[in-house]
Design a protein around this nucleic acid. Structure first.
Lengths: 340, 340
DNA sequence: TTGTATGCGTTATCAG
DNA sequence: CTGATAACGCATACAA
């Protein structure tokens, strides 16, 4: 079924059908009704490939999520989708996996779907000016940003200060008297990620409080690709516990890791927070429902999601870029305690 | 940048460029090298809209997920993506929201991306023959199926028997002496979903064991659209507890609801399983890490994901459809107990 | 081995 | 108001 068939069936020209479908230009009511009924009868929908080929402007927004199964992105995805839909902009949510280059995918998607804008959820700090220029449509980075040497006019960004928040969290543990503080994180890649920044914050906190950095207190686990954060955290915590009998606190790069770690700690017969204090990062909903509820560096996900939409629509209307850094909140819910 | 520009820049014809890019037909090494270097220099990628318009066959698979933020789908998504990629088939993961018609989205995607196959994760049992025929490419339904009156040759399906599994779970609670058994589920829509089938199973179990169905023991909570299952379960459980002081057990349609319910139960001062027994459904990873670990009807998600891929590739190679019904496993992990 | 010409389904331009 | 017709970027049949 093509527009040509519809034209033949309705006894009009193709351009008339096009006009009816797109509600553009003058069409007599008679003709309009006839065409509309044929379109409905045959359940015709225009071929987007052909449409996009013509380069018409759309209201299509792509939401590219680096690891769509990450629970932290959960609520943000829902909010972004809902709010964009409300404004009449369909959003194409798509996963981009760990190794993939999200900007390249965005460029591809822009062509495939004739996007008007892109929101990147997660990723790294390594985007280049050329990449943004090649993309060439309003782009919002969420939870990450680009390096300082990249022009701020090329993109908007919404994030927290990962290094500082991690620093604060670890400092809080130190203030409770902890010194042997484990760190659980994802296996480091070659890119600058929030992962790495939080690690920097961990190290700076130790350093500034006169505690020597001890590599055996750091663990990551990502051997098997299909592993979730829960199991990775579980395994990493087991390693840490085995290697460091005097460890009294753990800071995890993400809540899912922390929750997995909790299970390992509890399974080993230790208590939380009496024997081991633990702080996670992100503030995912699950952390509240676990027992004990998890202390965590809460990222204001709802606000960040809303801000990213605002930023995008601003840019869409010709406004400038914006770069907002939110404050995290250290939620104390019962998984930390002063050292015995 | 188009194939024409590349042709001009390399001093060859467009078809030669096309041949180089697609590795098809004979091209001299000289020319190939020249074209390749130009392509790389200008970072050229072919326009997929144009490609698809030509109707060439692809290896594109769409994975349409009904509610991509549902944790139960988490592992299945990861597996399907990984295994397809391994076989050289890129998979486009896309969310389809509650109200949307997944088959129509699939049809649209098929055209936009020239899909060779589709996997539908979640959804309902209401697909029509016409829909499958209009889609016209190998289609696998996971966790749902189509009505009995639809030809089984039009699609493959991988699922469990929701009604039976729910029946078994509730029967297990009854065997433990429970009679006032609450049921927590999602607000019912107008479609036949696993949700509804599990409700049927709940009712049948009561009936066959001589327990009268009591509507006040049923609760759903879905008022605010952005709510996650956790909070919905939490609120629903609060309602149930308020209305039914003698309720001694709860069966939840999904683990996320069950985990939210657990929090409500524990917060009210009741103990699990001593005061209230609870069974969830799905067997998501989180349930294992909560305290207490959640009893649940485990769906063999990995096997089902693998089976769906097998089914799809079979169909892709001209094989027939297959319809597999897996058995759930009632995992007993400590959230149920005989009634006091 | 390579280039030219055609058509995929739409939209836009233009002449009726 | 309406209908030809020319693009859009690419792949392919065909000619060279």
């Amino acid at each position: 079924m093509t527009i040509k068939d519809i034209a033949r069936l309705s006894g009009v020209g193709v351009s008339t059908v096009s006009r009816v479908i797109n509600n553009t230009g003058y069409v007599s009511d008679d003709v309009r009704n006839k065409v509309t009924s044929i379109v409905r009868e045959y359940n015709f929908t225009p071929n987007n490939s052909a449409r996009n080929l013509k380069g018409r402007t759309t209201k299509n927004i792509a939401l590219l999520v680096k690891g769509i199964t990450n629970p932290f992105f959960n609520k943000m995805i829902r909010i972004i989708e809902e709010k964009c839909a409300l404004r009449g902009y369909p959003v194409f949510i798509q996963n981009v996996d760990a190794q993939a280059n999200e900007i390249e995918i965005a460029i591809q998607e822009k062509r495939d779907r004739n996007l008007c804008g892109v929101i990147l959820l997660g990723g790294n700090f390594g985007y280049s000016e050329e990449a943004f220029k090649a993309l060439g449509i309003p782009t919002v980075l969420v939870t990450v940003s680009a390096n300082e040497d990249i022009s701020k006019d090329l993109y908007s960004s919404i994030k927290i200060d990962d290094e500082k928040e991690a620093y604060d969290a670890v400092s809080a543990l130190i203030a409770l008297g902890h010194e042997e503080i484990g760190f659980i994180y994802n296996p480091p890649g070659d890119q600058l990620t929030p992962n790495r920044l939080r690690f920097e914050g961990y190290k700076r906190a130790l350093e500034e409080h006169g505690i020597a950095f001890n590599p055996s207190l750091v663990a990551s686990y990502g051997g098997e690709p299909l592993h979730s954060g829960y199991i990775s955290g579980f395994r990493a915590a087991q390693e840490l516990l085995g290697r460091n009998p005097r460890m009294s606190a753990v800071f995890a790069f993400a809540d899912v890791l922390a929750l997995g770690a909790c299970k390992a700690i509890l399974s080993s017969g230790r208590r939380i927070p009496d024997d081991i204090s633990i702080i996670g990062f992100d503030g995912i909903e699950e952390g509240e429902f676990f027992t004990p509820s998890l202390d965590t560096v809460y990222q204001p996900a709802e606000e960040m999601a809303l801000a990213s939409i605002e930023a995008l629509f601003d840019m869409l209307q010709g406004g400038g870029t914006r770069h907002k850094i939110y404050n995290g909140v250290l939620l104390r819910r019962g998984s930390t305690k002063a050292r015995k």
